[in-house]
Amino acid sequence: MNANDPQITLYVNGTARSVPADSTVAQLVESLDLGQRRIAIELNGEVIPRSEHASRPLNDHDRIEIIRAIGGG
């Protein structure tokens, strides 16, 4: 990516992260190497179905949670 490209700031699992301004949810997932993982995504408190990842655009200051199943009782 070019340093001059417009960037937006997201809060991904609580941590600020810059991505190109025209990114989608699917592109964010790919850029985090999570494309092959079994995950689910919440965007500003709303669950985003997997079928909509490719079409859902991201906006400045969006809050994204990327979750998975782990061991627990």
């Binding site: 941590t15 190497d33 993982r37 990327i66 998975r68 199943a69 627990g72």
Partner: peptide, 10 residues
Amino acid sequence: TVAIRRTNIG
């Protein structure tokens, strides 16, 4: 039963 937590990133 499984727990639901944030994915480790990076």
